Simulated scan of single mutants.
Amino acid sequence: MSETSNSPLAKPLTLPCGVILKNRIAKAAMSDSLGDGAGNPTRDQISLYERWARGGLALSIIGEVQGTPHFAEKPGNLILNGHSDRELLERLATAGATDNAQLWLQLGHAGAMADAGISTPKGPSALNLPGLTCGALSLDEIHALPAEFAHTARLTKQLGFGGVELHAAHGFLLNQFLSPLFNKRTDAYGGSLQNRMRLLQEVTDAVRSAVGPTYPVGIKLNATDQLEGGFAEDESLEVVAALDNAGIDLIDISGGTYFPGAASSSDRSGSGPYFLDFAKRARAKTGVPLMVTGGFKTLAQAKSAITDGTADIVGLARALVVDPELPSFWLAGQRGEIQFPRFKNPPEGGVTAWYTMQITQNAKGEATLVSDDLEDAIAEYENRDDARRLIWNAHLSRA
């Protein structure tokens, strides 16, 4: 019997909606920054998700797809609305489903973290902090959000994508509402945790109603913001419990935030996965399948997480940037340890820039960057964003 057939990573996973994932390896959402600047996919992006699908994974998730151009995280984000290029999006959906893989869109709203060069950032509350200034969403704007997410989810299904993931992690809008650091509201959406999770529950209900019972709906949720006074593990467990009967198919556990000056989870040092201990606690709160994302560096760690029941599926991000075909090798019991680049004293955001530009290299089928390319990668990353901001504002400022 082959290693593939024996591997716990090769076992199919049936989601509550009835959809079957062919194995237990997923590409977690990353901001691949491969949109064309006007919210549409590029040929490079289509090629990349086909490459990842051919690499053996069961599920890919495209990070931060917007319902409108008004609160985007980056000018390379996709936008899904009535102005989108449906033909390109359908081609992307088809490419990402190669070899019976699933391609989901992560529905996002950057809120207070929206790119100030293409938007006017607004979050739950007005903030004026070093590196972060934003206004407060009005009650009418909050009330409009569930329908906005639902509309985007409905389009996702119509275009042939396999499912959606709601982004309630990493400091983006739904996570901002959960966090007492961001959310200082005194109305029905602030104060108690029950109030702070109200918007997430309303969005979840609206999306499930829009796509029906047999279409996958996942949520990416922070175990913790890793910020003093922020959204912490005990509160996150209460949210997990509250979502148990909400028609969710997958809870993707991650952590950290892109709050200016805060270290992201993906920049942490350490020898193993970041959130398995939290996942063990979450398992007691819900019967929803759990995906654990972050810090998997070896095949043994991934297999152990599935074998001991802590995770139902393993989420890989940077591992699939440095080795896009890794799932096929792990399923065959090969390439047991991932070789990540090492950087000396990188500036804030520099490592993210390097990985983002390596994603572009993968999409084009070009040579792998080395750690010494960091300075050039940062410059290219920033220049590309600047160019796309011009395109975004020219095409989308009145959309």
Rank of each mutant, 00 (worst) to 15 (best):
L48H: 01
D386N: 11
K285E: 08
N40V: 12
M291K: 04
A147G: 10
I248Y: 06
S179L: 05
V164L: 04
I359T: 14
D249L: 10
V211A: 12
F329K: 11
V239C: 06
A126T: 15
L34G: 00
P347I: 02
K122H: 11
L80K: 11
P347F: 07
A114E: 03
T352D: 02
R86C: 13
E228S: 14
G350W: 00
D85F: 04
P341R: 15
L92C: 08
H143A: 11
T98A: 14
A169W: 00
L80E: 12
Y49S: 02
A28H: 02
E141H: 08
Y49L: 10
T152M: 05
E87N: 06
D312K: 04
C17F: 06
N222H: 01
L105K: 05
G255T: 01
G315N: 02
R389W: 07
V321M: 08
P75N: 10
M357V: 13
L181V: 14
K364T: 11
F149Q: 03
D99Y: 14
G76M: 04
W330P: 03
P69K: 06
P341T: 14
L9Q: 07
D277V: 11
Q66R: 09
W52F: 15
E382V: 01
L290A: 05
S236P: 05
V203K: 00
I338T: 07
S47E: 11
L103V: 09
G218P: 08
A10G: 11
V321N: 01
G37A: 04
A241R: 14
A188F: 01
D385W: 03
A282V: 12
R54M: 10
L159T: 09
G18A: 02
L221P: 00
K285H: 06
R51K: 14
G117K: 10
A112R: 00
G309E: 15
I306A: 09
E148S: 10
A147N: 08
S397K: 12
D234H: 10
L159G: 09
F329V: 05
A188Q: 10
T356E: 02
E235M: 10
K364V: 10
N245E: 10
R43W: 03
V164Y: 01
D205T: 15
A317P: 02
L34A: 07
A311D: 05
K364A: 14
V164R: 00
D323E: 15
L250K: 03
D386V: 07
G37N: 07
V217K: 03
T224Y: 00
A242F: 02
L174H: 01
A97T: 13
I248P: 04
S47H: 13
I118Q: 08
R154S: 11
L200T: 07
A126M: 14
A399R: 04
V239K: 00
F161D: 05
S84D: 10
R389P: 07
P341K: 13
V351Q: 01
N6W: 11
P324L: 09
F161A: 06
S31G: 13
A26K: 08
